[in-house]
């Protein structure tokens, strides 16, 4: 017996969430409709509310409730440094360290020719335009230490070269608390190449 159409639609919509297959989506849908209808109502309202109020910051593209996000509008932030991240979650991870006081720019993805993700799919043209109008002293590329992160970093370095801005990349190497014998060769190689004077 097929599910009623609205239930089937809900199951399909829940499957857009990362890591949710059809079985998990069914369990979620039944949980909400059978056992927790008030929570289902709150969830629907929360989703609509967030959709309505959260958009991209017009300066750094992160998610914000305002036109310009809290960090971009903070006069106390260092406006000579711009840190490039792939996603708002990466930005929040860096913010949580409390070590960086500059500004950010969120690409919303990383270059991946194999997946068909091109510079135009990311916010790279907007980034170049921003730097043309608001130059900085240093661009810090904080993309992931993956093939896609490396490709994005290299592409950015080339795209920003005509602007004459200093472009740096986050250091890569042995994790804190890590033991050398357990670190893979690629990471150790990077750690060696990026060693610092004591």
């Amino acid at each position: 017996m097929p599910y009623p159409a609205p239930l089937e639609a809900l199951i399909e919509q829940l499957r857009v969430l990362p890591g949710v297959g059809r079985r998990s989506a069914q369990r979620m849908a039944f949980q909400l409709l059978e056992r927790d209808r008030p929570q289902a109502q709150a969830l629907a309202e929360g989703l609509l509310n967030a959709l309505e109020k959260i958009s991209n910051c017009e300066q750094c593209q992160t998610l914000t409730e305002e036109t310009v996000c809290e960090i971009c509008s903070d006069p106390g932030r260092d406006s000579t440094a711009l840190c490039i991240v792939a996603s708002p979650t990466d930005q929040w991870a860096l913010e949580a360290t409390g070590t960086y006081r500059g500004r950010y720019f969120v690409l919303h993805g990383q270059l991946s020719p194999i997946d068909g993700v091109t510079p135009e799919d990311l916010a790279i043209p907007a980034l170049v335009e921003r730097l043309q109008h608001h130059p900085v002293e240093e661009v810090i590329v904080a993309t992931n230490a993956t093939v896609e992160g490396e490709a994005t970093a290299h592409y950015l370095a080339e795209a920003l070269r005509p602007l004459g801005v200093r472009v740096t990349r986050l250091a890569q190497g042995v994790p804190l608390g890590g033991e050398l014998e357990l670190v893979d060769g690629g990471t150790l190689g990077r750690a060696f190449a990026g060693r610092t004077a004591l």
Binding site: E150, G185, G186
Partner: peptide
């Protein structure tokens, strides 16, 4: 187990990605 050999970097990385796309 990873073998010897460093990941490709810079422009060589894009050439490597081209090879991978060809294979896929």
């Amino acid at each position: 187990q990873s073998g010897p050999g460093q990941p490709l970097t810079g422009q060589a990385l894009f050439a490597g990605l081209y090879l991978n796309e060809l294979l896929l």
